[in-house]
Design a protein around this nucleic acid. Structure first.
Lengths: 342, 342
DNA sequence: CATGTTTTGGCAAACGTTTGCCTAAACCGT
DNA sequence: ACGGTTTAGGCAAACGTTTGCCAAAACATG
C-alpha cells in the first residue's frame, strides 16, 4: 500500500494567535473558552479580532489530550441495514449533536469480538460514553461497565444485568398483540421467532404467549428459524414455511400470526403471497417496530409502534445522568399498537 | 447542567510500561509499533510480556497529536432514515473498518450550515478524510476541497465540479427505465420528481425524458412536488395526486409512471391504492434504488438496482488514491433494472 | 503613605505519543 | 590493535491545549 501523507493541518494554532495578538497562549486559551473576566475588555476584543481574522479553531485533539475528555460518544449498533437500527442511530445522532456531541458509529455486526474491538478502540479515542444497541455479552463490555464507564443500553438490556437502559416494555408489546387478535375473535394463532433471539425478541414472544394463556386462548403454534446475523426477513420466510409445510407443522395457515419484528412479518408475507394467502383477509399479521414504510406500502401489517424518534433524547438524558455521577436508571417508552387496514 | 466528570482513563501509559520493563519509553513505543529490529530479541520479548500483563493500549489521542494523523474518516450524510443512505453508511463503514479506519457519522439533514459545521468540527478532530453523500454547495466544502483535503463525493457530484466521485450513471438509469416501459408497449407515460431535486434526481429524470424522445414516444406528463428535507414519500404522494387530480392535471392515470426514487414510488403507490388503481396491472411503476424490502413487500415495483453494498469498497479505494497523492477520479458502478412482477 | 485586595496576564508543567539524533558497545576485516 | 560499521537503546523535543500558580500593576481602604 502507498504511504499515507498526513493531512494538511490547520496552520493556525494558539501560538500563532498569541503572537499575532501580542499576548500569551494562556490568555488566548482563556478568552477562546469564554473566560472573559481574566482579561481586560480591550484585550478580549483584540484577541477575538485576531481569532476571527486568522480563522483560528481550537484543535480538539490537543484539547482532549490535556483535558482528558472529548466531545465524542460512541454508538455500537448491530447491522445498520435494519431500518429499526437506522432509526435509532438517526435519533441518537440528532440528540447528541444538539447536546454538543458528535457520534462515532460502529457496526458490530452483532459479533462479540467486533463489539470488544470497538470498545477498546473507542476507549483509546477517549470517548465520553458508549451507547450500545442490542448489546451482546462480551468480556470488554463487562469490563467497561464494571470500570464505571458511562454506557447506556438500548433495546436490549445489559446481558450482565444492571446499567442504564432505554427501550420499551417488550412483554407488554407482545401482550398488546395478543389482546388485539383476541379482541378480533381470532383463536387459531401462530407465532414465529428467530431461533437465536435477543432478550427483546424473547420478551415479546413471552408476553404474547402469557397473555394468550391468561385469556384462555388455545396455545398458539410456534415456529422458529435461524437468523444468521439479523436477517429477520429470511428467517420470517423460513419460519412460516416450516409452520405450514413442515412435517411437524400444522399443514394449514393460522388465522392470526404474531411476528416479533416487522422484518419477520415481511418475510412471512412473501411466503403468503407466493401461496395465494391474502393478508389480512385470510391471516391477520401483527408485527413489532412499526416501520416507517408500513403506512405506505404495507398497510396490511398491524404493528406495535416503537417511538424510536424519542430514543435519542432519552439516551442523552441517561448519559448526562451518568456523567453527573448518578446511578443508572431505566427508561421505558410507551408503545402503541397501530392498525391500518381493518 | 451538571458538571461533567472526566472519564476514567486507562492508567497504564507508555511510561508505566517503560518503567515496569526497565527500558525507555522510546523503546516501548518502537516495539509496540512493530519496529522490532531496533531492540534485541530478549528486550522485545520482555516488553511484549509487560504490555500484555499490564493490558497496555496506545492512546490514540496522544498518537494523533504527535503524528498529525488519526485513523478516522468522517462521513457526512443527509438524513439517515432514508434506506438508501443507511445502505451507503453501512457499506462505507464496513469497508473502512476492514481497512483499519473508524467512521464518524454526521447527519447533515441536507443543510449547508450543518454540513459546514461538521466539516469544521471534523477538521478539529484531525480526521483523515471526508466522505460526503449527496453534498450540498457550501463554503466550508469548497474550502476543504481547494485546501486539498481528501474528500470523496458519493451519489451527488461536487457542486463546484471536480473531485472524486462514487455513484452510478443516473442518466443511464433513467434511460433504462424508459426502455423498459417502451419495450412493454406502454406509451402513455408520466413522471414525478421532487421539485428541489438533487443533481442525481435531475439526471435520472433527464435521462428518462431524453430516451423517450429518442424513441419517438409522446412526451410524458410531468409533475413535481416539494420535498421538504428528503421526504420523498410525501412528495411522491402529493405529486401523483396533482398529476391525476390537479386542475392542470391529466384527470386520469397514466399507464406507466417513472419515479426517480423508490420512496417516491411508495408515496405514489399509496395514493393509487386509495383510489383503487391496481399496481402494476393498471399502471406500471418504475423506481430507482431497488430498496432491499422491494423483493419482500413491494414486488409490484420495478426498480433500477443500485449496488450500494459495493460503494464502500470504491469509496475506500478513492480515499487511498487521494492519500497517495494521486488526482481525483470517478467510479461509476453498474446499475440494473430489476423486474419482479411481470 | 501603608496595607490589603482585585485585576490582568504570563510561566511552565502537564496530557501520551513518536522520532531525529546521539552514544556506547559490539562486531568485523585487516 | 585499529578504524569502520552495525546494533541496541536512551534523550528530549515536539504535537496543541489547559490550568495551577505566581507576580506586577492597579485600585481601594485606613
Amino acid at each position: 500500500m502507498t504511504k499515507q501523507r498526513p493531512l494538511r493541518q490547520n496552520p493556525v494554532s494558539l501560538a500563532t494567535v498569541a503572537s499575532a495578538a501580542g499576548v500569551s497562549m494562556a490568555t488566548v486559551s482563556r478568552i477562546v473558552n469564554g473566560e472573559t473576566r481574566r482579561a481586560s475588555a480591550e484585550t478580549v476584543e483584540r484577541v477575538q479580532k485576531v481569532v476571527a481574522a486568522l480563522g483560528y479553531r481550537p484543535n480538539h485533539i490537543g484539547r482532549t489530550l490535556r483535558r482528558r475528555e472529548s466531545r465524542i460518544v460512541a454508538m455500537l449498533s448491530p447491522n445498520l441495514d435494519n431500518p429499526a437500527m437506522a432509526a435509532i442511530a438517526d435519533s441518537v445522532e440528532t440528540a447528541l449533536r444538539s447536546a454538543g456531541y458528535v457520534m462515532i458509529l460502529c457496526d458490530t455486526h452483532d459479533r462479540a469480538d467486533l463489539q470488544d474491538e470497538y470498545l477498546h478502540a473507542m476507549r483509546s479515542q477517549v470517548v465520553q460514553g458508549y451507547v450500545v444497541v442490542n448489546a451482546v455479552r462480551s468480556e470488554g463490555l463487562s469490563e467497561a461497565v464494571s470500570r464505571g464507564d458511562p454506557v447506556v443500553f438500548v433495546g436490549r438490556r445489559n446481558p450482565d444485568g444492571g446499567g442504564s437502559f432505554v427501550g420499551i416494555d417488550n412483554r407488554g408489546a407482545g401482550a398488546d398483540a395478543a389482546d388485539h387478535l383476541w379482541a378480533r375473535g381470532i383463536r387459531d394463532l401462530a407465532l414465529i421467532h428467530p431461533s437465536q433471539g435477543s432478550s427483546a425478541t424473547r420478551d415479546r414472544v413471552e408476553g404474547f404467549v402469557t397473555r394468550l394463556t391468561e385469556l384462555g386462548c388455545p396455545r398458539p403454534s410456534i415456529r422458529s428459524a435461524a437468523a444468521p446475523g439479523l436477517r429477520h426477513l429470511e428467517a420470517g420466510y423460513a419460519a412460516v414455511r416450516a409452520l405450514v409445510e413442515g412435517e411437524a407443522g400444522r399443514q394449514d395457515w393460522p388465522a392470526g400470526l404474531f411476528c416479533p419484528s416487522d422484518l419477520m412479518a415481511y418475510g412471512a408475507y412473501r411466503f403468503a403471497q407466493e401461496n395465494g394467502i391474502r393478508i389480512p383477509q385470510d391471516c391477520r399479521f401483527v408485527g413489532v417496530d412499526d416501520n416507517a414504510l408500513n403506512a405506505w406500502i404495507a398497510p396490511w401489517l398491524t404493528s406495535v409502534h416503537i417511538p424510536y424518534v424519542a430514543f435519542g433524547e432519552k439516551v442523552v438524558d441517561q448519559l448526562k445522568n451518568l456523567w453527573a455521577g448518578e446511578g443508572p436508571s431505566e427508561d421505558l417508552l410507551p408503545h402503541e399498537l397501530i392498525v391500518r387496514q381493518a
